[in-house]
Design a protein around this nucleic acid. Structure first.
Lengths: 227, 227
DNA sequence: ACAAAAGTGTTGTTCTTACACCCATGG
DNA sequence: CCATGGGTGTAAGAACAACACTTTTGT
């Protein structure tokens, strides 16, 4: 056992869909390095802590979300020497998908946290500190890909949702309009994707829509497809 | 910067297809802990070394493969406290896909390395040291999934290969027979998957088969599908 | 009545599957 | 000639895309 000790951090890409666009939770750095720049929330993994546990702890600290029901998955690990000017730090990136709750992003220790449009951030490679632009790019691509073959889009929705709300998630994440009629058919016919609750709502305007919950499927057959 | 220093290792899941079955390169551990058990090859990341560089170095050490043309991708990172009884070690797993070369697995520092059938190893959760059974499970599932939507199967083949050799890769990795005729059509019609070299071979017996090389595509549209 | 969104029907096209069939070689 | 694998044709069925059309609400 003869190794170089390194810092191990868990960084979070927390995504949500708000106002029809995909947004990411960023914090404004209050200290050097990269003071004043935007960064992904994150922090060091503690001695007796699992990687995912650390990610959930950070998630709770940043969002105030009792994180048990929040979707969280590991994306990749970044360890280029020099990626953190303070020393050798290896960062494990976790992707979190949260519904658009009226949660006002409980400001914690980090200076100020806020939701920022993903398209804006990805369009400017210098906006983020460290190698976070790269990490965000990878995480967003993961999310986009997983919507195709998994029922993950429901993670962005409240417990009960309408088909068009679900379609809004796809359209925001993929940045692409989908045919409401074909989408409706495909989603409701795919075994285990969504299950009707029996209730209806008129919150989207027009004719009342059925409400659904996530189903039990973990993969979608056949997948939904992007153009 | 106040963190618990940890060891960071790169572990390798080196897969190949030999004799019609998917095999993984394992080493027999010569020292405690888990002395005498099989384990994935790997080692600590050095101070000035990138994670992928470390993985390529280990790959070269274990297989003697000048690794530039070998497919290597990160799978996931494992960091449960207690996964290594010697101390806190976080392990970044890399998946390598190599052709069935007549390379006799250059024995290095590690006691003895050999190819073992993946089905056998996965069938016995106690065969591998540490949490390597879990890591192997994840890596194999990644490989199986990626064959569907990427031209990755060619990474298991020599520079020039026939369609039925490529089919043999799919059948070994998925553990499932495929229709030779439909497979042929699908592969040759998918833009950029394979390109004919013009040469033919009779090494598979029967009528001479065209030889192909990998194409330039990075994703397959439409994907090949498992049952 | 009208606008807006939900949801169903239909039609032509494309993809998939299963399998019949012919081709080109080695023995 | 025959066995072996390479490769093409084809027809039935499934999935898909585009869009006309009906339903049910709020205003």
């Amino acid at each position: 056992m003869d190794f170089e000790p390194m810092g191990v951090a868990a960084d979070l890409i927390i995504l949500t869909v708000r106002d029809g666009s995909l947004q990411v939770l960023l914090i404004r750095r209050g200290i050097a390095p990269y003071k004043g720049r935007w960064a992904l929330p994150g922090g060091f993994v503690r001695p007796a802590e699992d990687l995912e546990t650390a990610a959930r702890r950070e998630l709770a600290e940043e969002t105030g979300l009792g994180s048990d029901r929040i979707h969280l998955e590991q994306v990749a690990t970044y360890g280029q020497p020099g990626r953190d000017p303070r020393g050798r730090v290896v960062s494990v990136a976790y992707l979190a998908l949260v519904p658009d709750l009226p949660t006002p992003v409980a400001g914690s220790d980090a200076a100020s946290a806020s939701w920022v449009g993903v398209a804006d951030v990805l369009g400017d490679p210098k906006r983020l500190a460290f190698d976070h632009h790269r990490i965000l790019t990878d995480a967003v691509e993961r999310a986009r890909a997983k919507l195709e073959y998994s029922p993950l889009a429901t993670a962005f929705c409240a417990d009960e949702f309408t088909i068009s709300e679900l379609r809004g998630v796809y359209e925001a994440v993929w940045g692409q309009a989908l045919d409401p009629r074909n989408f409706h058919r495909k989603v409701t016919k795919t075994e285990g994707f969504v299950t009707p609750t029996g209730a209806t709502t008129t919150r989207d305007g027009g004719r009342p829509a059925q409400l659904f919950q996530r189903g039990t499927a973990t993969t979608l057959h056949p997948p939904l497809t992007r153009a």
